[in-house]
Design a protein around this nucleic acid. Structure first.
Length: 257
DNA sequence: ATGACTCCCAGTGGGAGA
């Protein structure tokens, strides 16, 4: 079983690349972030024609998430229950025997800003909800654009980024708190190439210089951990013409037998 | 270097992203 996450930075622009990628990389489920489409404009027919069931949840201009799966997702959920949120950031569903939760975590803009305070509140609400979800689903994966670089080794220039957005102690504490619920960073279950990033700024030839951050993650529950056989970032789509600034992350699980 | 690029909605400029 393969699960993936990709911040596509506008599905209207990236749909052809998504369909190409899915053809080359068949997955059981993938969560998308920053679709930037209202629900009436979501290209579900094209996705269904490619062989995927799809759940979507969006808004105009910003945010927007989707869950594509080979079989229909059940028990679906949009955003965090009980957390009043004007942004479309979460989509969850059960795919096979796995609870799949896709999230587009708030950016936070800058420490001390209103958006940073919102990011903190959002992360707190997510953790409380996840506690509940994990009590009902032992096999659970949390995937998405976390907008947090968990450690200095996830940052191309940790000195320049020290205390900056994505790298603050508060954000990293929230990441560790998620891990503390009994989740595991699937990427770090394996030896990985140094300087592995999932995002590169569009500016400054950052991709060519491999100046990026690892902010897109897949966390798996204790019950799924022994089934994880691989986890990788696919840099290939970042080399496309008009690429997203993020690359997909893919986790492979055995069948659990 | 308060930059750089890309996307969006706007409508020939500006916000947001990260």
């Amino acid at each position: 079983m393969k699960l993936a996450t990709w911040n596509v930075n506008s599905l209207a622009v990236r749909l052809p690349q998504l369909l190409d990628w899915l053809q080359a990389n068949p997955v059981d489920a993938i969560v998308l972030q920053e679709t930037k489409l209202t629900d009436d404009k979501f290209p579900h027919a094209e996705i269904e024609a490619a062989g995927y069931a799809v759940q979507w949840f969006g808004q105009k201009t910003y945010n927007g998430v989707a869950l594509l799966s080979r079989g229909e997702a059940t028990d679906t959920q949009r955003n965090i229950p009980g957390f009043d949120d004007p942004s479309a950031r979460v989509i969850a569903g059960t795919v096979g025997d796995v609870r799949v939760i896709g999230g587009y975590f708030p950016n936070g803009q800058a420490p001390g800003s209103d958006k940073f305070a919102y990011k903190m509140r959002w992360l707190e609400a997510l953790r409380l909800w996840l506690t509940d979800e994990m009590s009902r689903h032992t096999k659970l994966a949390l995937l998405g654009d976390f907008n947090i670089a968990p450690e200095d080794r996830d940052v191309y220039d940790p000195v320049a980024w020290a205390g900056q957005i994505h790298c603050t102690d508060e954000e990293r504490a929230h990441f560790r708190a998620l891990v503390g619920l009994g989740l595991h960073d699937a990427f770090r279950l394996f030896e990985q190439p140094p300087k592995s990033w999932s995002w590169w700024d569009y500016r400054n030839l950052a991709f060519r210089r491999n100046q990026g951050l690892r902010i897109d993650h897949i966390l798996v529950s204790e019950a799924l951990k022994p089934r994880v056989t691989a986890c990788a970032i696919d840099k290939l789509p970042r080399k496309n013409e008009r690429p997203s600034d993020h690359a997909p992350v893919v986790v492979t699980l055995d069948n659990g037998a």
